[in-house]
């Protein structure tokens, strides 16, 4: 295996272009684990950690740009991720366990596209967009459409993710992430990421995304709409939950059966909504 440490995005792109079996190395947490297990053997690794711009965090009027190489720990500690954007911070601060949060990155999480992970779902809930750099320049892609299948993104060969834009969202919005796992350090059995705007007791806006319940983060417009305009009564939540469950295609695995995950979705939705509302009041 060959190895390189480019110092600019352009150098990185050139390396990716020059090697058929090149792969980016971000935090390495998942990629190195897969290499250890003999499940992947890239011919060339392009480590992104010496490219300064990939670790930048910049604020603009309508949101925050997070560099692809920001670690979960860094994202969790970012105070400017407030309001709707807090869903990303909340997920980054809870997922996995501390040493993984110290190593793994935002970009790595997006590009790995592992359906069991939480950050992709939180990013979809935040309506985040990824900046993709490739031979033809840079483009912005909603994270939701970047994630096309389990462990598959719409990135083309030779492309990489440079940064992710988290829109500020509506004033007064709250973002919240809830995970449920067998033990605290485990991947979630089901996770829920949501952004909520309340007007008094009435829901003005809702965006609910379920993790670990299908090949990609599960987002159902109709479920969001079912909540908007209601007072989030039990029946509203149950109905929105049903819409989500209908669209879910969860896995049967060691963390729980598909059936259990279907049971959890509406149950955890109610809890996530009420926790988010508590946040809204403080």
């Amino acid at each position: 295996m060959r190895y390189a440490e480019p110092e600019t995005v352009e150098e990185g792109l050139a390396l990716l272009a020059a090697h058929d079996d090149a792969r980016c190395l971000a935090g390495g947490a998942s990629l190195v684990a897969m290499m250890n297990a003999g499940r992947v053997a890239p011919g060339m690794l392009v480590s992104l950690h010496r490219i300064p711009e990939l670790s930048d965090i910049t604020e603009t009027g309508d949101g925050l740009w997070l560099g692809a190489m920001c670690t979960h720990r860094g994202v969790a500690a970012e105070p400017r991720l407030r309001g709707a954007m807090a869903v990303v911070r909340s997920a980054a601060g809870q997922l996995a366990h501390p040493a993984i949060r110290n190593m793994a990155t935002l970009g790595g999480s997006v590009c790995l596209a592992d359906p069991h992970t939480e950050l992709p779902a939180a990013l979809v809930a935040a309506s985040a967009r990824a900046e993709v750099a490739g031979p033809g320049g840079r483009r912005l892609v909603p994270v939701e459409s970047l994630l096309v299948d389990g462990f598959r993104t719409s990135l083309q060969r030779g492309e990489l993710v440079t940064r992710v834009f988290i829109p500020r969202g509506t004033d007064g919005a709250v973002g919240h992430h809830l995970r449920f796992s067998r033990v605290s350090s485990d991947y979630p059995t089901v996770s829920l990421s949501l952004v909520l705007v309340m007007d008094g007791d009435t829901c003005r806006q809702a965006r609910v995304v379920v993790g670990a319940s299908g090949p990609v983060p599960l987002h159902v417009d109709a479920a969001d709409q079912r909540l908007v305009g209601t007072r989030l009564e039990e029946a509203d939540v149950a109905e929105a939950g049903r819409l989500l469950v209908r669209a879910a295609t969860p896995l049967d695995d060691v963390r729980g059966s598909a059936e259990y995950r279907r049971m959890l979705i509406p149950r955890l939705l109610g809890r996530a909504l009420s926790q988010a509302r508590e946040h809204a009041h403080v």
Binding site: H97, R182, V183, S184, S185, V254
Partner: peptide, 23 residues
């Protein structure tokens, strides 16, 4: 330990979870 058709489904410490300090 969980098996499917004789194959262990969780022969890793990620699949087979022992309690951690928070559990």
């Amino acid at each position: 330990l969980l098996w499917k058709e004789g194959h262990l489904l969780n022969p890793t410490m990620g699949g087979y979870k022992v309690p951690g300090a928070l559990d």
